[in-house]
Design a binder for these strands. Sequence first.
DNA 1: ACAAGTATGTTGTAAAAACAACGAAACAAA
DNA 2: TTTGTTTCGTTGTTTTTACAACATACTTGT
Lengths: 230, 230
Amino acid sequence: MSTAGSAQVSYAFLKKTALFRGTTEAELPTLLGCIAPSYRDFAKNEMILHQGEDITSIGMVLSGRVQIIEEDFWGNRNIIADLWAGDVFGESYAFLPGELLRVSVIAAEPSAVMMIDARHMLEICSSACRFHTRLVQNLLAESAKKNLALTRKLSHMSKRNTREKLLSYLSSQSLSAGSDLFEIPFNRQQLADYLCVDRSAMSNELCKMRDEGLLTFERSSFHLMGEIKI
Amino acid sequence: MSTAGSAQVSYAFLKKTALFRGTTEAELPTLLGCIAPSYRDFAKNEMILHQGEDITSIGMVLSGRVQIIEEDFWGNRNIIADLWAGDVFGESYAFLPGELLRVSVIAAEPSAVMMIDARHMLEICSSACRFHTRLVQNLLAESAKKNLALTRKLSHMSKRNTREKLLSYLSSQSLSAGSDLFEIPFNRQQLADYLCVDRSAMSNELCKMRDEGLLTFERSSFHLMGEIKI
DNA sequence: ACAAGTATGTTGTAAAAACAACGAAACAAA
DNA sequence: TTTGTTTCGTTGTTTTTACAACATACTTGT
């Protein structure tokens, strides 16, 4: 069972997390006193948040490993995300009162979690606690970052066939790199998983495109050909 | 060409937008004075933001119609979104310095736009301007909302075939409705577009599932069957 | 009621993807 | 080096999807 965990959080750890980035160890006690987080420990396979709940706090993994699980109408389970120390969860729901959790959060290993009430994060308290601004900035940045990643992935996946998905992804990577010559952070299987297609079919399509002169590649290095072919 | 638009914005309009929701007309002058928006008018087909830019302001459409356009490596254009009065754009980029715009924003009709510097939105000014909190709350809520919508769509689209995409979507709608009997907000063509599949193939799959006893439907009304069939 | 237009279901065919199975190359460990 | 493992390309088969074409039912405007 879960217990009200002791607040054994190192400031050195906290200041490196996405949420508390930019605050110094000296500032953290004040900030923490103000946002008043609660701490809880969870046993392996224990539920942290249940699908259908209306949450008002965001969570941060302090130690262990936490999974986001989705269960459909017929009870089929699907692991949406794997979270580790420093990762934040529930932030998409906590600021939307009345929006019920579509997922469950479960401890994949014995884990410690920090929960912060959404109102405490947004309400401006004493003027001494101006670190709030930084916190909110970090939160907005995280949300925006997640948003961009989702939009980008969606834009590839909305293409109707494997070739177009590939071209969309590679075009995007080329843009990121600022060059028609670039490296991708995936191997073939990972790329196929990311684009939600079959690996061998994808590999096949890549080679066809190479044979047609659209691009060349070598392992994870790609080169897009923009010039007109004769 | 664009002109520095006159600040002809009605408070009645503003207080109803997602961004300024929750502030009264009386509070708006103070808030606007504090966040110091700039106003610009754009001619039809004029570029508002260019792909590759590093923006630090978010935009809000005051009048007209604005489109988000994506252009790939080979110059193929794709309309990502259609924005109308009250809609916000650029919020996913403005809070991420260094993140270059992947899209362009263009006026599809003569349009008026309000731009607000991201720092002005986050920095706490005089204590008089506590409406800031509300603004930031709205912004976070909008970002979270968009996030949820994207995640949900992605979770349907990542399924490998039409049947599973349909089941994922319908299961999700059933959950929203809190019932195995529910209405969807799409006709067949719209649903096919949303799930990125062919309409007739989708229609076919729906009927197959009906014949197999998985569900029944009538136009936009659906009924999922969870019971075990004999 | 009537006509025109739209939405939905249905079918057959061609194209594309998933799947399975395998060989070669690259890589890592003993 | 040798061995075992992973990655990647390749091929053939089966399943699924896209596409086109059309029939029917429903909607809307007159």
